[in-house]
Amino acid sequence: MQRPSALGPYQKQGIPMLDIIVCFKWVVDEAFIRRTSSGDLDFSSVDYKISEYDRNAIEAAVRLREECGGSVTAVTVGPPEAAKGVKDALSRGPDRAVFAEDPLFGGLDPSQTAAVLGQVISSKTPFNLIICGEGSGDVYSQQTGPRLAEFLGIPCAAYVQKLTVKEGRVTAERKVEGFIEVDSLPLPALVTVLPDIATPRIPGVKDTLMASKKAVIKVGKNELTAVPPPLLKTKSVRAARVERECEKFTAEVEDIKRFVAALQKRGVLK
């Protein structure tokens, strides 16, 4: 698939203002998923929410704007019902939103989501920093952010817990496998952030009411070049099953022996 120019006219002008894009996903609120007696998941009465990780990402973006000046644009890809999510996102502080909307956008895989986001961002929204949550609250593939950076041809740091922006570079503190790595990336860049980056605010009444007054740029599927075919196909989703045997042991010597034997029998101890 042909990629559009990664950097829009805004970036080419080299404007130093920090224009942040924060990506978010409108996901099923897992509290409403029911499990049927056959082990299937019942989504018939679910509600939706902004993915938990993305709420922290939005908060990080808004705080960075408060610190450095500039703007925050919230961007999402989703079905028309995600319009409520756009309002929710805007109530958390971004200045405007871009919403790539199509009934088919509810079931994209990460490569497709990244491709749509990439096209929308490069054509509609000037930026010099993109912030994504480390993964989405539903499938948590953790791919969309890095794939989007790849699509736009900009540097990427994932799993970031602290961010500072100075003199055209972003310093990203990454938490990886028991140690902390500090990276310096030239802007424009993309970071995926851990929940530790910022605790999301609870929007006040006026924040929610004001959200309806902020600009939302809607992008239809027909404004994009073809969405690539999925690389990943979800064949089924079923509830995890935990089998419990409920065997009881006391602290008596005989029981301890029996306990060890039981663990050995099940391969827990060798």
Partner: peptide, 8 residues
């Protein structure tokens, strides 16, 4: 708005 305010 009412739904979001309820959630909040």
């Amino acid at each position: 708005e009412q739904e979001l305010i309820r959630k909040n």
